Simulated assay, not measured.
Amino acid sequence: METRGLNAKPREGTEVEFKAGFCFDPATGTNKVLRESVARAVCGFLNSNGGQVYIGIRDDGTVCGLEDEVSARFQPDDFDTFEHGVHEYLKQHLSPYPFGNIELAFEEIESKTVAVIKVKPVQFYVYLLKKAPHTDSNEIYVRTGNRTICLTDKARDKYVIERLGGIWMH
């Protein structure tokens, strides 16, 4: 695994999102809801101006790293399997999958390994595929300020029309 050192810890904002883990919260243990949260953030960056999702940093900026998650789910230091799992989850839940717009790298921050998903914006739009009991829905997320929001109804329609080069007339 190749890691790159980082001098200054980033701050959450329009183009930066923190997640404590991918499907393991160091404070509470296994938490599969985190995967969808990461996918929402990636989808929001794809549909906006791009950005970076840091996995291994809590919302308050505390660096927890990925060592506990990787050791609990795989073998110690098996970051390759972790990376594969992130890519596979995103491929299954983003549609159309934006090949070439998502890159995952590892960085060392405060002596801990953190995954950074670097996201380039798309010219079209990407759905987050949600599969829940009794429903299959596709949602469009965008980034606004330090939040990722789901567009619905007229806001979604306006976004899609304008994203495809049309003019919203309502």
Rank of each mutant, 00 (worst) to 15 (best):
D25S: 07
P26H: 01
P26E: 04
T28N: 08
K32D: 11
K32G: 11
L34D: 03
A39S: 07
R40I: 10
C43P: 00
C43D: 05
F45S: 06
L46A: 04
S48K: 01
N49W: 06
G50T: 01
G51V: 08
Q52A: 12
Q52M: 11
V53W: 01
V53Q: 04
I57C: 03
I57Q: 03
I57N: 00
I57H: 01
I57R: 04
R58S: 15
D59W: 00
D60R: 03
D60Y: 00
T62F: 05
T62Q: 11
V63K: 06
L66Q: 06
L66W: 03
V70S: 04
R73W: 11
F74P: 10
P76D: 05
F79H: 09
D80F: 00
T81V: 08
F82W: 05
G85P: 03
G85D: 06
G85A: 09
V86Q: 02
V86N: 03
V86L: 04
L90I: 01
L90M: 01
K91A: 08
H93A: 09
L94S: 14
L94T: 15
L94N: 12
L94F: 13
S95Y: 13
Y97F: 15
N101V: 12
N101I: 12
E103H: 03
A105C: 10
F106E: 00
E107F: 14
E107W: 12
I109F: 02
I109A: 04
E110C: 15
E110F: 12
K112H: 07
T113W: 09
V116L: 01
V116G: 04
K118A: 08
P121A: 07
P121F: 04
Q123L: 12
V126Y: 03
Y127W: 13
Y127T: 14
L128M: 10
L129S: 10
L129I: 15
K131S: 13
A132M: 08
A132Q: 09
P133W: 11
P133R: 11
H134V: 14
D136H: 13
S137N: 11
Y141P: 07
